[in-house]
Design a protein around this nucleic acid. Sequence first.
DNA 1: CGCAGCCTTGACAAATGTCAACAAACGTGG
DNA 2: CCACGTTTGTTGACATTTGTCAAGGCTGCG
Lengths: 231, 231
Amino acid sequence: MPDSDYSEVRKLHLFSQMEDAQFGALMRGAYVQNFPPQIELITEGDPSDFLHIVVSGAIELFSSWNGRDTSMATVRPVSTFILAASIKDAAYLMSARTLEKSRLVLIPSQDVRAAFEESSSFAKAIVLELAQCYRSVVKNTKDLKLRTSRERLANYLLRQKERSGSLAFDLALEKRRLASFLGMTPENLSRSFKGLEAYGVKVTGNHIVITDLDDLTRFAKPNPLIDDFSV
Amino acid sequence: MPDSDYSEVRKLHLFSQMEDAQFGALMRGAYVQNFPPQIELITEGDPSDFLHIVVSGAIELFSSWNGRDTSMATVRPVSTFILAASIKDAAYLMSARTLEKSRLVLIPSQDVRAAFEESSSFAKAIVLELAQCYRSVVKNTKDLKLRTSRERLANYLLRQKERSGSLAFDLALEKRRLASFLGMTPENLSRSFKGLEAYGVKVTGNHIVITDLDDLTRFAKPNPLIDDFSV
DNA sequence: CGCAGCCTTGACAAATGTCAACAAACGTGG
DNA sequence: CCACGTTTGTTGACATTTGTCAAGGCTGCG
């Protein structure tokens, strides 16, 4: 494994406190692979052979049922995904595909479970990571159940504004994927954007400008217990 | 703490592998309390002072935003709730109220975090518990995003059928709470039940009889990656 | 009995999805 | 560089789903 990948992965909360020996052992068993866009890396229902780490590119997690499918999350570097399945040695609940050309580190799940048994600092890091993941999904459920699609979009835009630190930013996702992530159709998203123009949102292609933050905020009513990443 | 509570709690996966000394220390700092029905035990946003364990009764986890609220889960004995917040020392994301007269064991969150630091067997149990919780919420999100409300109800009935081991069973929740849990209004639930009569569901008050399992299953299309508790 | 809360029903409104058409953006091969 | 086809986004018309409001029935309990 190239040194740059090694050190990038080492910096993750999940691994940063781990003993050198344990981390080295994990990495020796790991694979580094590059994938072209639109490759299905994981199919839901399959046994979880590897813990995945995105080093560059972007990964979409999605799920299907009865001919429908929905975007569950987008994973960006540097982060892990499907940790819970690896630890539990259970089937994947979500599928994953590359959105762009992506570079992944794959750690055999059984190595992860072995390290988890041996290293208490790793076990502790996993606890914090899983607690964070759990809380993210709970917040997402609240977003879905308590808000209309237009409100979800408005709050999504405010979160993106926070992330970018600017009132003007580009959408990180194609609109069709954003629509699916927010739990609506592309047509509905298109109309929701139109509807938010009245509250100071200007859309040009995938470029967004918030022209009246107060107005949008009054409409969106963002809440830390749903919208703050860190809470 | 009464011996019967002590041993009930001890049996939970979360504590069963823990060293006696550590478990004893946790229990010495714990409180046992009885609550009447309809008491709000936890308000979302508050700091997480205690890990809660239901020993008897039933607890509803719910969330509110902008004047709306939704039922997130029902917790039945013997189980813990809000573990993630306790571990992360973060604010509660959900509120909790008793549905019935309930008996709870409350363990100060800082004791839980101390035990988590000291006991690697406890840390490992927490990992498995959180991974399970995470996967449950992911399944719930799939249910919400991929299915219509009537499909969610149909699959809910099939899950209850599995739990009860019989084609005839009583609903464990008031219908209004079930509606909220499934993400719909009571009126819509009422009509969804009506709609399922055509697929072999007989409803009398809170008593359900599935008269044509094949037909209902064909309609509901249950999927282990959404509906199986253990997966 | 009489009240209060829950459930159901009907009528209606709002939100969201579907389908079809078209425009705009993108990538590929000539 | 352009022409072409493919994909994505938008728009309109319409259907379906879901929510809202109001009324009435049922049930349980003081």
